[in-house]
């Protein structure tokens, strides 16, 4: 019987002259010595000769041949296992589902961050507004209906976003009460998590006391580093820094016994010192969770990237360096853990984003990046169903697993595709590559495979 090496098989060099064979689609791994791996790597057209098969087939029952087949790294020539697996995994996307609701409580913000992809993309004549309680309730109702028709959503999420959501705190409170009632009467699952993404400057004791009463609430405060760096990155509209107000807000939460995580946007002002900033989050702020944001393109960014290629490569490496630090202390960094969880648990990570975005004026979209232009936003009527709408269908299939140009990528099944908005603004379409994110995805995949070699040979 003739065999063929899977087109999804990648060879990754690791320590001690070991090489991992990795199926980037189905996530199987077998580790070989360099010489044996080289014999396989140099087969012409991936077709394995009978002589090589005999070599692989030695060593009794648990031999290399059976392990390579089991991990889908090679397959009998007459069975196109690659094609079958690719089709099966694509089928995983065919069931329509929505698991995230973004409630944009206002599209205005009291800060003027140079990299913000929401505020900086507003047309000059844009009229800012605040969400009303009625629109908040209609967004939650729409989400509850979509969840009812969706399958496989383990933990639905409602995210309060902006602008700065706490600038509309009365409506945030009303929405939180409405969510609690919807959970109590079974319209929303009891495990629906709630997250408030805030710049932290408006948090006071009254807000902290009100938030303390909410179950299953996560708070994420944007903080880009110590005072000097943060103040450069995240100033008020008059140019003064926001650091002291953010720390005062964080202190209010701590005084009220509320745990908060942090969001840190990596840009040219903090990327070089990211490892030190990570240690500071860990040791001084006692952060239990963190999320790194990779910059999303906007035309007013004034060089927040610096050199884009340098930014992308350094950012990718720094996120990995910080993960090495965080994993020793059990700190969850969301950006890399999306990929780590997929790789470790062997599940496919289809998307990096998606869901319902409820704008302050009641229009419904898929991405807040388009809030200014209202591209990919629709005005819902009483029959509106995002699960049946062509915009959501287009975004559902915006996954590396449905984009043939990424079939040979080492990060194929753990990537998620990055930011469609960034791909659109940098490269002309949501179906193009998010090239900055891509560097991070590939570097992370290679790191995980090499780290697995170390873990598997630990103590040997």
């Amino acid at each position: 019987m003739n065999f063929k090496i899977s087109e999804f098989c990648h060879f990754v060099d690791g320590k001690n002259n070991l090489v991992a064979l990795y199926n980037a689609l189905t996530l199987g791994v077998v580790i070989l010595d360099k010489d044996t791996a080289k014999i396989l790597q140099e087969t012409k057209g991936g077709i394995i000769s009978v002589k090589i098969i005999d070599m692989l087939n030695s060593n009794g029952e648990n031999n290399l041949l059976s392990q390579l087949i089991k991990n889908k790294l090679i397959f009998p020539l007459e069975q196109n296992v690659d094609l079958q697996d690719y089709a099966t995994i694509q089928m995983g996307l065919s069931c329509k589902k929505i698991g995230i609701l973004y409630l944009l409580m206002t599209d205005a913000c009291n800060l003027s961050c140079g990299y913000c992809f929401v505020e900086n993309l507003m047309p000059s004549d844009y009229t800012f507004s605040k969400m009303t309680p009625e629109i908040a309730r209609s967004g939650i109702d729409l989400f509850a209906k979509a969840l009812e028709k969706s399958s496989g959503i383990e933990e639905p999420q409602i995210i309060f976003y902006g602008g700065e959501p706490l600038a509309n705190f009365n409506v945030v409170q009303e929405a939180l009460e409405y969510i609690a009632r919807a959970k109590a009467d079974g319209r929303l699952p009891g495990n629906t998590s709630i997250t408030i993404n805030t710049n932290g400057t408006l948090i006071n004791d009254n807000i902290a006391a009100a938030l303390k009463r909410i179950d299953n609430l996560n708070l994420a405060i944007s903080l880009d580093g110590l005072r000097e760096i943060h103040n450069i990155c995240r100033p008020y509209h008059n140019g003064t820094g926001s650091y002291d107000d953010v720390m005062r807000g964080y202190q209010c939460l701590q005084n009220n016994g509320i745990e908060a995580g942090f969001c840190c946007t990596i840009n040219r002002h903090n990327v070089e010192q990211l490892h030190q900033i990570a240690s500071w989050f860990m040791d001084e702020l006692d952060a239990k969770s963190l999320g790194f944001n990779i910059l999303i393109e906007n035309y007013k960014m004034n060089g927040m990237h610096g050199d884009v290629k340098y930014y992308a490569e350094l950012t990718a490496q720094k996120i990995i360096d910080c993960f090495r630090l965080f994993r020793e202390k059990g700190i969850y960094e969301d950006r890399i853990m999306r990929k780590v969880n997929a790789f470790v648990d062997g599940h496919i990570y289809y998307h990096d984003c998606g869901g319902i975005v409820m704008s302050p004026n009641g229009m419904v979209g898929v991405c807040q990046g388009y809030l200014g232009t209202k591209k990919y936003f629709v005005k819902p009527d009483h029959q509106f169903d995002p699960l049946e709408h062509p915009v959501w269908e287009e975004w559902q299939f915006r996954s590396p697993l449905f984009m043939a140009q990424f079939k040979n990528c080492i990060a194929l099944s753990i990537c998620g595709g990055g930011c469609p908005y960034s791909a659109d603004s940098r490269n002309g379409s949501i179906r193009e590559l998010d090239d900055i994110f891509c560097v991070h995805a590939k570097a992370t995949a290679e790191f995980l495979i090499k780290d697995l070699i170390e873990q598997a040979t630990h103590g040997q």
């Binding site: 070991l18 791994v29 077998v30 580790i31 070989l32 010595d33 044996t36 070599m55 060593n59 031999n63 290399l64 392990q67 991990n71 965080f326 994993r327 020793e328 202390k329 059990g330 700190i331 969850y332 853990m337 780590v340 969880n341 790789f343 470790v344 648990d345 062997g346 995980l448 780290d451 697995l452 873990q455 598997a456 040979t457 630990h458």
Partner: peptide, 21 residues
């Protein structure tokens, strides 16, 4: 010839102390 098939525990060891709550 060296053949190592990583066990589930090897995969989990990548996460070290990170527990997903």
């Amino acid at each position: 010839m060296t053949v190592i098939v990583p066990k589930q525990t090897d995969f989990h060891a990548i996460k070290k102390m990170v527990t997903n709550g």
